[in-house]
Design a protein around this nucleic acid. Sequence first.
DNA 1: ACCTGGCACTCCGTCGTCGTGAGTGCCAAG
DNA 2: CTTGGCACTCACGACGACGGAGTGCCAGGT
Lengths: 343, 343
Amino acid sequence: MSDERRLAVLRAIVEDYVATREPVGSKILVERHSLGVSPATIRNDMAVLEEEGYIAQPHTSAGRVPTDKGYRAFVDRLSTVKPLSVAERRAISTLLDDATDLDDVLTRTVRALAQLTRQVAVVQYPSLSRATVRHVELVALGGPRLLLVLITDSGRVEQRMVEVAEEVPEALVAEMRTRLGAASSGARLADVVARLPALPDQFRPEDQGVVRAVLRALEDSLSAEREERVVLAGTANLARAGTDFPQSISPVLEAIEEQVVLLRLLGEMAEDAQAGAGGVSVRIGRELEHDRLLEASVVTSGYGSGGQVVAHLGVLGPTRMDYPTTMAAVRAVARYVSRIIGS
Amino acid sequence: MSDERRLAVLRAIVEDYVATREPVGSKILVERHSLGVSPATIRNDMAVLEEEGYIAQPHTSAGRVPTDKGYRAFVDRLSTVKPLSVAERRAISTLLDDATDLDDVLTRTVRALAQLTRQVAVVQYPSLSRATVRHVELVALGGPRLLLVLITDSGRVEQRMVEVAEEVPEALVAEMRTRLGAASSGARLADVVARLPALPDQFRPEDQGVVRAVLRALEDSLSAEREERVVLAGTANLARAGTDFPQSISPVLEAIEEQVVLLRLLGEMAEDAQAGAGGVSVRIGRELEHDRLLEASVVTSGYGSGGQVVAHLGVLGPTRMDYPTTMAAVRAVARYVSRIIGS
DNA sequence: ACCTGGCACTCCGTCGTCGTGAGTGCCAAG
DNA sequence: CTTGGCACTCACGACGACGGAGTGCCAGGT
C-alpha cells in the first residue's frame, strides 16, 4: 500500500508520456525509472491509480495515459520547479531589454514567451481602470470630430474618437482640456469616472452637449469590453504540435481567435488559489470549462509594477505539456516584464 | 483545334476542382458542364492543356488538377466577377458601420473580410509617411521620460516613449510642443522629417540634447520598420481548410506570423499591374516567391480616402480557392473601408 | 480536319486477413 | 506485499486481391 511509490509511479508516467507522447506501460516504466520493483508490482499500482482516476488506457491492453486529474496531481504535488537555463534567461533579456514603449514591450514579451515555451503565448494589456491618469489630451481634428487621448502611469495610451454635432471652437476644446486634466491628473481612472457627472455643470449651458459627448467617450473607453486588449504569438506552434490535439487544432484556433475566451480565462485564473510556485496559476483540460479547449491547458501569471498586479500573461498548449518548464518560463517572463514596467 | 473550347474546358476544370476538391476527369466534366462533345474529345483537349502546363495529373490515370499557371489563366481571362449577395453586403455594413476610431475600423474590417471569405484576412495600417500631420503632442511623464504622440489625418495615432538624460522642465516641454507643432501641423510627414534638422538651432544650446532626443524618436517612429503594422483575423479558417494544404498548414502559419512576409507581399502586389477588375491584385502559389507559401494564394486591394491609396488589405488562402468570390469580397470591403476612412 | 466509340492498360484506394508484439489482469507461490 | 508465470486482448502494419476511375490511342464516321 506504499502510497509514496504510487505517486512516484504517477510522476514517472506523466514525465514519460510528456517526453514520448506514447502511452506508457509497466515494463518501460521500470526500465527507464529506477523504481526498484518488478513490472507486476507496478501493474498493481497502476490499477489503483486508474481506479482513482489519475490515469486511463486508450484501449484495453495499451499503456496508460495521465488524465486531467493525473496532471493536476502532478502539478500540485509532484513536479519540481525546473529553473531556466542561462541561455534562456539571456534570451529573455536580449529580447526585452531594448524595448521602447509599452506596445513594444508587450509585443516582445509575447514573442519571447511563445519562443521559450513553443506554445501559444498571450499577454494582456495593463488594466485601465486600476491605473492612475498621467495625462488627458483633447485634440480638435477639424470638422465635428475630436480625439481623446488618455495616458496612464503604466505607459498605456488609449485613444478614442468623439463625434459631436458640429465643429467645436478651439476655446471650448482648451477649456475642456484644462478641466478634464484638473479632474483626472494623478487620480485612479475608476475614481475619475466617479467625478465625471459633476463636470458639465462647470460649463456654459450651450456647451454642455459637447462636454457630455466627450465624457461619454471617456467612460466608454474605460468600459470593461474596450479596455481589455491582448497580444498573441506562437499560433504556428499549435500546428507543429498538431498531433497533441487528438481531434484537430481548429477548435483551439477558434477559441484563441475569440479573444473574449482568453480574457475570461486570464481573469478567472487570476483569482484561482495562487499557491503554485511564484503566483503561477494552471488550468488543465476540463478545468478550463470550455468545450473547444478540452485538450488544452493554460498557465498564467500576473505582472505589474511595485507588487501591484495590473495585468496577466500566459501560455496555452496541449494538456500533455511540460508543466515544470512551462511554469518556470511563464514565471520568469512575468517577473522580467514587471521589472521593466516598474522602472 | 477550337481554342475557345479548350479554354472552356480549363474553366470547367478549375470550377469543378475548386468545388469538389477532387481531381476532375473527362467524364465528369461532360456530365456536369454542357460542353456538347464526348469525353474522348475532352481528353484530347486536356492532353493539350497539360502539354501547355495549365493542368497536371497527380498520378497517372487520375483526373486533372489546375496548375498555378492554370489558375492564373482562369483569373486573368476566364473568371467572371461574381457580385456579392445582398446578405453579404449587409453583413459588411452592419459590421463596419458603428466603428468608433481607426483601430476599431480596422479590427472590424479584418474580421468582416475573414468571415466573408472564410480565409485569413490581413489589413495594413494607413501609411504614416504619406499622411499629413494633424497634431503633435509632447507629454512629460514625470522623471526623465517624455511621450510623443502623433496624430495623422487618417486618424492614426502613433505614440513613442522618449528617454532623456534627466527630468525636463515643463517650460521646455511646452516650448518643444509649440515649435514641433508649428513645424509639422498640416504638413506631410515625409516633409516634416526633412525640416527636423533645422529645429534644434531654435533652442538654447543647453537644451539641444533633449531636443535632439525627441527628434530622433520622431524620426524613428516614422522609420519604415515601425510604421508598418497589420491586423490579422481568421487564422482558424486555415485549420478548417487544412486538407487544402497538402503538406501541412504549419509553414503557412509560420509565414503569417512573420508579419514582415505579409508586409512585403502587400507592398509588392500594390505595384503589380492593377488590371484585375477594380484594382484587385492576385498572386498564385509560386508567384508569391516564398517557400512556405507554395500552396497559397493572396488577393489584395488598396484602400484609402479620396482616391488616394494609403494602405492595403487582402486575404490569404489555398491556391485552390474560389477566386471570383474572394476577389469580389476583397474589392467590396476595400471600397467600404475607403468610404468610411474618407468621410 | 475533327469528333467519337471502343479497348486495353495503369494505378490508386479499399478492404479483409493474418501475424506480431506490447500490454494487461489474475493467480499461486515466495 | 511482491513476484514470476500465463493466458488473453487488441492496435497496428504488411500483404494481396479487387474494383473503379481515368487515361491514351486507334480506327472509323462525318
